[in-house]
Each structure stands twice: as structure tokens, then as C-alpha cells.
């Protein structure tokens, strides 16, 4: 098997900022193990000579002119905010520093 551990899933959940319950971690560990086992099949044909494709259509140099367009109004910008203080979004205190 691919050997996905519960510790790994817990770590992935913290990277993905999802507060998973122990039950969810347990079931996702099984799911992820099976899925990874299945999708690792891609490695069979992904040889070094094959280039990677990130975009289905090979476009390059798609640019916008440096011209100001109207922004949202402040009310529109904040219309979906769970919490606000004046014209700013309000969030609980930040634990870690970046």
C-alpha cells in the first residue's frame, strides 16, 4: 500500500486549514491510501522525456493594458463580510506571525 498514515493526514489537514475530527482523519487515511494507490499509476508512463502540460491551450503573453477600471464600491466589497468594522474586514486575533 501507499502507506498514508493518520499523522500525515493530520499534517495535510493543518496545511489545508481544516479542523478534522479524529474520525474524519481515520476515514480519510483509508480513502487517501486507496486513492493514492490508484492514481500513482501515472508514474508508469511519466518518463523524463515527456514534457509536462500545465495549460491545455498553448497561449503565451496575454496582457492587460495599465488602465484603471472602476472598482467595486466599498459596500459591495464588504457586502458578504461575516464581520466588519467601518470599511474594513474584521477578523479574530491572529495567533502566528507571518
Amino acid at each position: 500500500m501507499s502507506g498514508i498514515t493518520a499523522e500525515q493526514v493530520a499534517h495535510l489537514a493543518s496545511l489545508a486549514r481544516i479542523d478534522l475530527s479524529p474520525e474524519e482523519i481515520a476515514s480519510l487515511t483509508i480513502d487517501l491510501g486507496q486513492i493514492v494507490e490508484s492514481v500513482k499509476k501515472v508514474q508508469e508512463v511519466a518518463t523524463p522525456d515527456v514534457p509536462a502540460t500545465s495549460h491545455p491551450m498553448p497561449l503565451t503573453n496575454v496582457f492587460r493594458d495599465d488602465i484603471v477600471v472602476p472598482s467595486l464600491t466599498v459596500e459591495q466589497a464588504l457586502s458578504g463580510a461575516p464581520d466588519r468594522d467601518g470599511d474594513k474586514f474584521r477578523v479574530p486575533p491572529i495567533l502566528e506571525e507571518d
Binding site: 498514508i4 500525515q8 493526514v9 495535510l12 489537514a13 493543518s14 496545511l15 489545508a16 486549514r17 481544516i18 479542523d19 478534522l20 475530527s21 474524519e24 480519510l28 480513502d31 487517501l32 486513492i35 493514492v36 477578523v91 479574530p92 486575533p93 491572529i94 495567533l95 502566528e96
Partner: peptide, 26 residues
């Protein structure tokens, strides 16, 4: 805010979404 984000994403996402986010993060 870190814990609120994590709690929100736990409560707001269904099991399939969580499954794929964890898989994609991996």
C-alpha cells in the same frame, strides 16, 4: 483567526470536498 478558519472549513465543506482538498494538498 487560524482556528476560526479551520473550524469554518471543517463545518462548511462536505466530505467529498475535504477528501479532494486533502488529496490535492498531498
Amino acid at each position: 483567526i487560524e482556528r476560526v478558519m479551520a473550524a469554518t472549513r471543517d463545518a462548511g465543506f462536505g466530505p467529498e470536498v475535504k477528501r479532494r482538498i486533502i488529496l490535492g494538498t498531498y
